[in-house]
């Protein structure tokens, strides 16, 4: 068993790599507790049922985007009969961003940090912080 040191060494490197995210998070002090979201005060409802929004807001946004940019559909009638202007900044963030002090970072961003996604929308779409 002359190979033993090699095998053991390999195993250790492998384990270190596999468990890296755990160590990394422990060192960085990030927690696995769900994020605390600041919801818009004085507003009761989102543009769709909240359960739907939690799971499928990205699809809704894609539909809004395709609708507005490609098919010139720029108003949206919600499930509760209200109509909204189709706009990421001017509608979603007008409600969500203004309430949360830091604009999208305090609402969308918190959740995305937690979920580990970084939508590139903000490279172009403007944030709407409270001023």
């Amino acid at each position: 068993m002359r190979d033993r040191p090699l095998i053991l060494g390999g195993l250790i490197v492998f384990l270190a790599l596999v468990t890296f995210p755990v160590w990394y998070n422990a060192a960085a002090g990030t927690s696995s507790r769900p994020p605390q979201l600041k919801l818009p005060a004085g507003q009761k409802e989102c543009v769709a049922p909240v359960a739907f929004m939690k799971t499928s807001h990205m699809q809704l946004l894609i539909d809004w985007r395709e609708g507005a940019v490609r098919n010139n559909v720029r108003t949206f009638t919600a499930y509760n009969g209200k109509t909204y202007n189709v706009s990421l900044t001017n509608t979603c963030l007008d409600c969500h961003g203004v309430q949360a002090r830091a604009g999208q970072a305090d609402f969308c961003g918190r959740c995305h940090d937690y979920a580990g996604v970084t939508p590139k929308c903000w490279n172009c779409h403007n944030d709407r912080p409270r001023n």
Partner: peptide
């Protein structure tokens, strides 16, 4: 379902847009 929901809202949005146009 999600698909059904999107379908309904999509149609209503299109109708509304057409009316506005």
């Amino acid at each position: 379902t999600r698909k059904g929901f999107l379908g309904v809202t999509g149609i209503s949005a299109a109708v509304l847009a057409a009316r506005k146009l």
